[in-house]
Protein backbone atom coordinates (compact mmCIF):
# COMPACT_ATOMS: atom_id res chain seq x y z
CA UNK A 1 0.00 0.00 0.00
CA UNK A 2 2.93 2.28 0.78
CA UNK A 3 4.26 1.78 -2.70
CA UNK A 4 0.90 2.34 -4.30
CA UNK A 5 0.62 5.53 -2.27
CA UNK A 6 4.04 6.68 -3.51
CA UNK A 7 3.00 6.05 -7.09
CA UNK A 8 -0.29 7.91 -6.71
CA UNK A 9 1.36 10.87 -4.99
CA UNK A 10 4.07 10.90 -7.66
CA UNK A 11 1.46 10.89 -10.38
CA UNK A 12 -0.19 13.92 -8.84
CA UNK A 13 3.19 15.63 -8.47
CA UNK A 14 3.57 15.03 -12.19
CA UNK A 15 0.72 17.47 -12.76
CA UNK A 16 2.88 20.26 -11.38
CA UNK A 17 5.81 19.21 -13.55
CA UNK A 18 3.56 19.12 -16.59
CA UNK A 19 2.61 22.71 -15.82
CA UNK A 20 6.32 23.60 -15.66
CA UNK A 21 6.85 21.85 -18.97
CA UNK A 22 3.85 22.99 -21.01
CA UNK A 23 5.11 26.54 -21.62
CA UNK A 24 8.57 25.28 -22.50
CA UNK A 25 7.10 22.82 -24.97
CA UNK A 26 4.83 25.46 -26.51
CA UNK A 27 7.53 27.99 -27.32
CA UNK A 28 9.87 25.32 -28.61
CA UNK A 29 7.09 24.09 -30.88
CA UNK A 30 6.31 27.51 -32.29
CA UNK A 31 9.73 29.14 -32.59
CA UNK A 32 12.34 26.50 -31.70
CA UNK A 33 13.39 28.67 -28.78
CA UNK A 34 14.68 27.05 -25.60
CA UNK A 35 14.22 29.52 -22.81
CA UNK A 36 16.80 29.02 -20.07
CA UNK A 37 15.01 31.63 -17.97
CA UNK A 38 11.82 29.55 -17.95
CA UNK A 39 12.33 28.32 -14.39
CA UNK A 40 13.07 31.81 -13.13
CA UNK A 41 9.89 33.05 -14.82
CA UNK A 42 7.96 30.39 -12.89
CA UNK A 43 9.53 31.71 -9.69
CA UNK A 44 8.74 35.29 -10.76
CA UNK A 45 5.09 34.26 -11.16
CA UNK A 46 5.13 32.79 -7.66
CA UNK A 47 6.44 36.06 -6.24
CA UNK A 48 3.90 38.09 -8.21
CA UNK A 49 1.24 35.81 -6.73
CA UNK A 50 2.63 36.38 -3.27
CA UNK A 51 2.60 40.14 -3.67
CA UNK A 52 -0.94 40.05 -5.06
CA UNK A 53 -2.29 37.93 -2.21
CA UNK A 54 -0.60 40.14 0.37
CA UNK A 55 -1.55 43.44 -1.25
CA UNK A 56 -5.16 42.57 -2.04
CA UNK A 57 -5.69 40.09 0.77
CA UNK A 58 -7.11 37.51 -1.61
CA UNK A 59 -6.75 33.75 -1.83
CA UNK A 60 -3.74 32.66 -3.97
CA UNK A 61 -6.01 31.04 -6.53
CA UNK A 62 -7.82 34.34 -7.00
CA UNK A 63 -4.45 35.99 -7.56
CA UNK A 64 -4.42 34.13 -10.88
CA UNK A 65 -6.76 36.81 -12.20
CA UNK A 66 -3.92 39.30 -11.79
CA UNK A 67 -0.85 37.13 -12.33
CA UNK A 68 -1.93 35.38 -15.53
CA UNK A 69 -2.48 38.58 -17.54
CA UNK A 70 0.61 40.15 -15.95
CA UNK A 71 2.83 37.24 -16.98
CA UNK A 72 1.26 37.19 -20.44
CA UNK A 73 2.07 40.88 -20.84
CA UNK A 74 5.62 40.30 -19.62
CA UNK A 75 5.93 37.45 -22.11
CA UNK A 76 4.75 39.54 -25.03
CA UNK A 77 7.05 42.42 -24.12
CA UNK A 78 10.02 40.14 -23.53
CA UNK A 79 9.54 38.45 -26.89
CA UNK A 80 9.07 41.61 -28.92
CA UNK A 81 11.62 43.65 -27.01
CA UNK A 82 14.47 41.17 -26.76
CA UNK A 83 13.93 37.57 -27.80
CA UNK A 84 12.77 38.18 -31.38
CA UNK A 85 16.16 39.74 -32.04
CA UNK A 86 17.90 36.52 -31.09
CA UNK A 87 16.01 34.18 -33.41
CA UNK A 88 17.77 32.91 -36.49
CA UNK A 89 20.00 30.10 -37.62
CA UNK A 90 22.55 30.68 -34.91
CA UNK A 91 21.96 28.75 -31.72
CA UNK A 92 24.06 30.91 -29.43
CA UNK A 93 22.15 34.21 -29.16
CA UNK A 94 18.86 32.83 -27.79
CA UNK A 95 20.68 30.54 -25.36
CA UNK A 96 23.02 33.18 -24.04
CA UNK A 97 20.43 35.94 -23.91
CA UNK A 98 17.90 33.80 -22.02
CA UNK A 99 20.74 32.72 -19.75
CA UNK A 100 21.45 36.40 -19.07
CA UNK A 101 17.75 37.02 -18.40
CA UNK A 102 17.81 34.12 -15.95
CA UNK A 103 20.66 35.67 -13.97
CA UNK A 104 19.03 39.10 -14.04
CA UNK A 105 15.68 37.74 -12.84
CA UNK A 106 17.29 35.76 -10.04
CA UNK A 107 19.19 38.74 -8.73
CA UNK A 108 16.34 41.18 -9.21
CA UNK A 109 14.12 38.87 -7.12
CA UNK A 110 16.88 38.66 -4.51
CA UNK A 111 17.03 42.44 -4.40
CA UNK A 112 13.28 42.86 -4.01
CA UNK A 113 12.28 39.84 -1.92
CA UNK A 114 15.59 38.80 -0.25
CA UNK A 115 16.81 35.21 -0.11
CA UNK A 116 14.36 34.21 2.65
CA UNK A 117 12.06 31.37 1.63
CA UNK A 118 8.46 32.46 1.12
CA UNK A 119 5.21 30.61 0.90
CA UNK A 120 1.69 31.48 -0.09
CA UNK A 121 -1.08 30.84 2.36
CA UNK A 122 -3.91 28.97 0.72
CA UNK A 123 -5.74 28.26 3.95
CA UNK A 124 -7.65 25.00 4.27
CA UNK A 125 -6.82 23.94 0.73
CA UNK A 126 -3.25 23.17 1.76
CA UNK A 127 -4.17 20.42 4.16
CA UNK A 128 -7.61 19.30 3.02
CA UNK A 129 -7.72 15.71 1.86
CA UNK A 130 -10.07 12.88 1.13
CA UNK A 131 -9.88 9.10 1.29
CA UNK A 132 -10.03 7.00 -1.79
CA UNK A 133 -9.80 3.25 -1.54
CA UNK A 134 -7.55 3.39 1.49
CA UNK A 135 -5.35 6.18 0.10
CA UNK A 136 -5.41 9.71 1.39
CA UNK A 137 -5.31 12.27 -1.41
CA UNK A 138 -4.68 15.94 -0.81
CA UNK A 139 -7.09 18.27 -2.54
CA UNK A 140 -4.27 20.54 -3.61
CA UNK A 141 -2.30 17.88 -5.57
CA UNK A 142 -5.55 16.61 -7.07
CA UNK A 143 -6.54 20.13 -8.07
CA UNK A 144 -3.07 20.71 -9.54
CA UNK A 145 -3.40 17.59 -11.65
CA UNK A 146 -6.89 18.57 -12.83
CA UNK A 147 -5.64 22.04 -13.74
CA UNK A 148 -2.68 20.55 -15.59
CA UNK A 149 -5.02 18.33 -17.61
CA UNK A 150 -7.28 21.30 -18.33
CA UNK A 151 -4.34 23.49 -19.35
CA UNK A 152 -2.97 20.89 -21.72
CA UNK A 153 -6.42 20.20 -23.18
CA UNK A 154 -6.83 23.96 -23.58
CA UNK A 155 -3.47 24.37 -25.29
CA UNK A 156 -4.25 21.42 -27.52
CA UNK A 157 -7.55 23.04 -28.47
CA UNK A 158 -5.92 26.41 -29.17
CA UNK A 159 -3.21 24.76 -31.23
CA UNK A 160 -5.40 22.55 -33.40
CA UNK A 161 -8.83 24.20 -33.43
CA UNK A 162 -8.41 27.96 -33.52
CA UNK A 163 -7.11 30.56 -36.01
CA UNK A 164 -4.42 31.49 -33.46
CA UNK A 165 -3.19 27.89 -33.35
CA UNK A 166 -3.25 27.77 -37.11
CA UNK A 167 -1.07 30.86 -37.14
CA UNK A 168 1.30 29.22 -34.63
CA UNK A 169 1.62 26.08 -36.72
CA UNK A 170 2.00 27.94 -40.00
CA UNK A 171 4.68 30.24 -38.60
CA UNK A 172 6.48 27.26 -37.11
CA UNK A 173 6.38 25.49 -40.50
CA UNK A 174 7.67 28.35 -42.63
CA UNK A 175 8.15 31.88 -41.36
CA UNK A 176 8.45 33.53 -44.78
CA UNK A 177 5.36 31.95 -46.23
CA UNK A 178 3.41 32.65 -43.05
CA UNK A 179 4.41 36.28 -43.42
CA UNK A 180 2.88 36.19 -46.94
CA UNK A 181 -0.41 35.19 -45.33
CA UNK A 182 -0.39 38.47 -43.46
CA UNK A 183 1.04 37.02 -40.28
CA UNK A 184 3.58 39.29 -38.65
CA UNK A 185 5.93 36.73 -37.15
CA UNK A 186 7.19 39.12 -34.49
CA UNK A 187 3.61 39.46 -33.26
CA UNK A 188 2.84 35.74 -33.59
CA UNK A 189 5.94 34.89 -31.54
CA UNK A 190 4.94 37.53 -29.02
CA UNK A 191 1.53 35.89 -28.65
CA UNK A 192 3.13 32.45 -28.29
CA UNK A 193 5.36 33.69 -25.49
CA UNK A 194 2.41 35.45 -23.87
CA UNK A 195 0.45 32.20 -23.89
CA UNK A 196 3.46 30.26 -22.59
CA UNK A 197 3.96 32.66 -19.71
CA UNK A 198 0.24 32.66 -18.92
CA UNK A 199 0.66 28.91 -18.35
CA UNK A 200 3.85 29.66 -16.41
CA UNK A 201 1.81 31.94 -14.15
CA UNK A 202 -0.48 29.04 -13.25
CA UNK A 203 2.56 26.82 -12.66
CA UNK A 204 4.17 29.46 -10.43
CA UNK A 205 1.09 29.87 -8.28
CA UNK A 206 0.63 26.16 -7.70
CA UNK A 207 4.34 25.88 -6.93
CA UNK A 208 4.08 28.71 -4.41
CA UNK A 209 1.05 27.21 -2.69
CA UNK A 210 2.56 23.75 -2.52
CA UNK A 211 6.08 24.51 -1.26
CA UNK A 212 8.21 27.35 -0.06
CA UNK A 213 10.28 29.11 -2.68
CA UNK A 214 13.21 31.47 -2.93
CA UNK A 215 14.88 33.26 -5.87
CA UNK A 216 17.45 30.52 -6.45
CA UNK A 217 15.14 27.63 -7.28
CA UNK A 218 14.38 28.55 -10.91
CA UNK A 219 17.11 26.37 -12.40
CA UNK A 220 15.68 23.29 -10.74
CA UNK A 221 12.17 24.00 -12.08
CA UNK A 222 13.57 24.50 -15.59
CA UNK A 223 15.25 21.12 -15.34
CA UNK A 224 12.07 19.34 -14.20
CA UNK A 225 10.10 20.92 -17.03
CA UNK A 226 12.82 20.07 -19.51
CA UNK A 227 12.96 16.45 -18.36
CA UNK A 228 9.21 16.11 -18.68
CA UNK A 229 9.35 17.48 -22.24
CA UNK A 230 12.13 15.13 -23.32
CA UNK A 231 10.66 12.06 -21.60
CA UNK A 232 7.29 12.70 -23.22
CA UNK A 233 8.69 13.41 -26.66
CA UNK A 234 9.23 16.77 -28.32
CA UNK A 235 6.18 18.48 -29.70
CA UNK A 236 3.65 16.28 -27.93
CA UNK A 237 1.68 18.12 -25.23
CA UNK A 238 -0.06 15.04 -23.82
CA UNK A 239 3.32 13.32 -23.90
CA UNK A 240 4.58 16.16 -21.75
CA UNK A 241 1.93 15.32 -19.16
CA UNK A 242 3.02 11.69 -19.25
CA UNK A 243 6.64 12.84 -18.93
CA UNK A 244 5.73 14.90 -15.87
CA UNK A 245 3.99 11.94 -14.29
CA UNK A 246 6.92 9.59 -14.94
CA UNK A 247 9.28 12.13 -13.41
CA UNK A 248 7.01 12.65 -10.41
CA UNK A 249 6.61 8.92 -9.77
CA UNK A 250 10.37 8.36 -10.10
CA UNK A 251 10.99 11.07 -7.52
CA UNK A 252 8.48 9.85 -4.95
CA UNK A 253 9.68 6.26 -5.29
CA UNK A 254 13.28 7.45 -4.99
CA UNK A 255 12.37 9.43 -1.90
CA UNK A 256 10.73 6.36 -0.41
CA UNK A 257 13.96 4.37 -0.77
CA UNK A 258 16.06 7.16 0.73
CA UNK A 259 15.07 10.82 1.16
CA UNK A 260 18.38 11.90 -0.43
CA UNK A 261 17.48 10.00 -3.57
CA UNK A 262 14.36 11.93 -4.53
CA UNK A 263 15.86 14.24 -7.16
CA UNK A 264 18.55 11.81 -8.21
CA UNK A 265 15.98 9.11 -9.01
CA UNK A 266 14.14 11.53 -11.29
CA UNK A 267 17.31 12.47 -13.14
CA UNK A 268 18.38 8.85 -13.49
CA UNK A 269 15.04 7.84 -14.99
CA UNK A 270 15.38 10.77 -17.39
CA UNK A 271 18.89 9.69 -18.43
CA UNK A 272 17.78 6.08 -18.83
CA UNK A 273 14.94 7.10 -21.12
CA UNK A 274 17.33 9.33 -23.04
CA UNK A 275 19.65 6.35 -23.46
CA UNK A 276 16.94 3.94 -24.57
CA UNK A 277 14.49 6.23 -26.40
CA UNK A 278 16.34 9.41 -27.37
CA UNK A 279 13.19 10.86 -28.97
CA UNK A 280 11.15 10.37 -25.84
CA UNK A 281 8.40 7.87 -25.17
CA UNK A 282 5.72 9.46 -27.33
CA UNK A 283 7.36 11.47 -30.11
CA UNK A 284 4.86 13.17 -32.40
CA UNK A 285 4.53 11.09 -35.52
CA UNK A 286 6.00 12.98 -38.42
CA UNK A 287 3.27 14.06 -40.82
Amino acid sequence: MDWLNAIVQGTLLGGLYALFAAGLSLIFGVMRLVNIAHGDLIVLAAYLGLTTTVALGVHPLLALIVVVPAMAAIGYALQRGILNQTLGDDLLPPLLVTFGISVILQNALLEVYTADPQKMNAGALETASFDLGGLTLGWLPVLTMLVAIAVIAGLQWVFYRTPLGRAFRATSDNQDIAQLMGLNKAHVFGLAMALALAVTAIAGLFLGIRTSFDPSIGGGRLIFGFEAVIIGGLGNLWGTLAGGVILGVAQTIGAKIDPGWQLLAGHIVFLLILAVRPNGLFPRVAA
Binding site: L91, G219, L222, E227, I230, H267, I268, L274, A275
Partner: peptide, 22 residues
Protein backbone atom coordinates in the same frame (compact mmCIF):
# COMPACT_ATOMS: atom_id res chain seq x y z
CA UNK B 1 25.02 14.13 -27.85
CA UNK B 2 21.59 12.65 -28.44
CA UNK B 3 20.16 16.05 -27.57
CA UNK B 4 20.20 18.67 -30.28
CA UNK B 5 21.32 22.27 -29.90
CA UNK B 6 19.71 24.08 -27.04
CA UNK B 7 18.45 20.87 -25.45
CA UNK B 8 22.04 19.72 -25.28
CA UNK B 9 22.73 22.78 -23.15
CA UNK B 10 20.06 21.94 -20.59
CA UNK B 11 21.11 18.29 -20.71
CA UNK B 12 24.59 19.28 -19.55
CA UNK B 13 22.97 21.07 -16.64
CA UNK B 14 21.01 17.96 -15.67
CA UNK B 15 24.27 16.03 -15.73
CA UNK B 16 25.89 18.55 -13.40
CA UNK B 17 22.92 18.19 -11.04
CA UNK B 18 23.37 14.43 -11.07
CA UNK B 19 27.04 14.85 -10.14
CA UNK B 20 26.13 17.25 -7.35
CA UNK B 21 23.49 14.94 -5.91
CA UNK B 22 25.79 11.91 -6.13
Amino acid sequence: FRLRGAYFAIGTWVMAEVFRLV
